[in-house]
């Protein structure tokens, strides 16, 4: 199939950047979206140009490295998958495809479609961990966890930290990411003792990074490749209110 690509090109973090048009010719329908970009890049390199830079790693939909906002939707309109799992058979011959980076002030562009998502790492470093040694694997039944909490924690833990939630939110809010990472630990007995410190630390770091605020439109949930529910945002709101109240009283 032949496609027209409208791709965001930006030489460096301080460059203004602009959309450039490329013709992608003879793209096999079975190619993945990233393979399609590989093919286009080979042609650009042969012609002596600078290839399109984009993030990628496992190409199996599990690492969270790939990004790209495809036709205005992070990871494309396909539900529950990452960009590397999008295949060209979902497009039609002659289509025009807009390819932009995950846009947020807290995700500065490094080059072209590559963004620096280290702000997520700093949020994790501010509380997204358990600071005691939990030991080696113990008997599964020695520390009881009820089924609902275990399920919710497991679902939240599926977050791969790709940043699509931020990219989709009109406010560039990171509430789904922070909510998932906090809920993952807060729901378990190992994470419960540091719950207040964790929530206060992570939310304050999230604000300091310059992410926006959740306005409950749930675009994040719609594009999340791991289909994490916005229930984790409600839980984060509740946990933050409780932690802030305890902090004020103590």
């Amino acid at each position: 199939m032949n496609l027209t690509l409208k791709v965001w090109r930006q030489e460096s973090p301080n460059d203004k950047g602009n959309i450039e048009t490329y013709e992608a010719k003879d793209i096999p329908a079975e190619a993945s979206f990233l393979e399609m970009l590989d093919i286009v890049n080979e042609e650009i390199i042969v012609a002596g140009g600078d290839p399109i830079h984009f993030d990628h790693d496992c190409r199996e939909g599990i690492c969270g490295a790939c990004s790209l906002t495809i036709n205005g939707v992070p990871h494309s309109k396909e539900n529950g998958i990452t960009t590397c799992q999008v295949h060209m058979r979902k497009f039609r011959d002659g289509d025009t495809i807009w390819i932009e980076p995950f846009r947020a002030r807290a995700f500065p562009i490094v080059k072209d479609l590559v963004t620096d998502r280290a702000s997520f790492d700093r949020i994790i470093a501010s509380g997204g961990y358990i600071s005691v040694r939990t030991g080696s694997a113990v008997d599964a039944n020695s520390l009881p966890v009820n089924f609902e909490d275990a399920s919710e924690s497991f679902n939240a833990a599926a977050c791969i930290g790709c940043g699509a939630c931020v990219a989709a939110c009109k406010n560039a809010s990171a509430m789904l990411f922070v909510g998932a990472k906090a809920a993952h630990l807060n729901l378990l007995p190992q994470g419960e003792p540091e719950k207040d410190k964790r929530v206060l630390g992570m939310v304050r770091q999230m604000d300091a990074e310059g992410f926006g605020n959740c306005t409950n439109q749930y675009e994040c949930e719609a594009v999340c490749p791991k289909e994490i529910s916005t229930d984790v945002i409600a839980k984060l709101n509740r946990d933050y209110a409780t932690a802030a109240t305890r902090e004020a009283v103590e």
């Binding site: 409208k6 807009w98 846009r103 002030r105 009109k170």
Partner: peptide
């Protein structure tokens, strides 16, 4: 919220 996305999407 407006400051959180300094460059908007073209699409």
């Amino acid at each position: 919220n407006r400051a959180a996305r300094d460059v908007d999407y073209s699409c």
